[in-house]
Computed example of a mutant assay.
Amino acid sequence: MAVGSTDPIGHPFRSPGLLRQALTHRSAGAPHYERLEFLGDALVNLLVAEALFDRWPKVDEGALTRARAELVRESSLASIARDLELGDRLVLGPGEMKSGGHRRDSILADVVEAIVAAIYLDAGFDACRARVLPWFEGAMARMPPPHKVGKDAKTRLQEWLQGRRKPLPVYALLSESGEEHAKTFRVSCRLAEPEVETEGDGGSRRAAEQRAAEAALALLEG
């Protein structure tokens, strides 16, 4: 789809160059989306924080923080990009195009943030809020009640063990594979008491550790 004067979700850009920049990866030359992404990251966090603050007036800071993190994480933003079919509109260099950059979560998430910034610069904060918040409404509606918004798996595993005076888990990197821009990490999670060892894969070491911790919790709580 060619870049025109309208963004992927219907915003009529007065400055079409902003949209073009927001959809251009650095591999395709300048101007690309990275500066917009920087601004868009802050805007997305603010917009989602504001929406959660209004939605849950009696919820404490910790639960609000965890809910926001869930909504703005890379995979959540990439899902929004796919809903908006942004992958088909990305402008990529030959190498990124060949390696499937238009499907990669990291790039798709960055582009969502860049487009948020482009809308803000083109039309102001109120127009940006009105256009962007509906992208998150479905995910917000599916979130559990605030008192059940969970801590991450590593934190829950640590608290489970500490509550029973057991040694803390030890995480170890088992392997990493793939090209530099699309690595997969495999990590083990070893417990001494009870004796348990699980493994997890992820696009980052932290994500792999979370999955290994989830597997350990499933054994302990199962």
Rank of each mutant, 00 (worst) to 15 (best):
D83L: 12
A63P: 06
P94S: 07
L86E: 01
V59P: 10
M97I: 12
A69D: 09
I80R: 05
L86Q: 05
G62R: 07
S75L: 14
V91D: 05
D83M: 12
A63V: 12
G87A: 12
E61F: 15
A63G: 10
D88E: 13
D83Y: 10
V72W: 02
E74I: 12
M97F: 15
S79H: 07
G95V: 15
S79T: 06
V59H: 10
G101E: 03
S75Q: 12
T65G: 08
G100D: 09
L71E: 03
D60A: 07
L71F: 02
V59T: 15
R66P: 05
S99R: 04
D60Q: 03
V91K: 09
G95L: 14
E61Y: 14
R68T: 04
L84P: 00
S76M: 12
A69V: 09
E61R: 11
D60H: 03
S76P: 09
G93W: 11
E70W: 13
E96S: 10
S76D: 14
A78P: 01
L92D: 02
P94H: 10
P94V: 08
R66C: 11
V59D: 10
D88I: 00
S99E: 07
R73E: 11
P94R: 08
E96V: 09
R89F: 06
L86R: 07
M97K: 13
A81L: 06
D88N: 11
E61S: 15
I80A: 02
K58H: 15
P94M: 11
E70M: 15
A69N: 07
S79A: 13
L90T: 03
E96F: 12
S99F: 05
L92R: 00
R68Y: 04
M97P: 06
E74C: 13
V72M: 02
L71D: 03
A67D: 01
V72C: 05
V72Q: 01
A63Y: 07
S79G: 12
S99Q: 02
T65P: 00
S79D: 11
E61H: 10
K98L: 15
L84R: 15
S99P: 01
G87F: 02
E85V: 07
G95P: 06
G62V: 12
L90V: 04
V59Y: 04
R66W: 08
R82S: 02
K98H: 13
E96R: 07
R68K: 13
I80D: 03
G100Y: 04
V72D: 02
M97Y: 15
A69T: 07
R89T: 08
G62A: 10
M97Q: 14
R82H: 04
L90R: 01
R66M: 12
S99D: 09
R66G: 06
A78C: 03
G93L: 05
R68E: 00
A81H: 00
S99N: 10
L90I: 03
D60G: 06
V91F: 05
E74N: 11
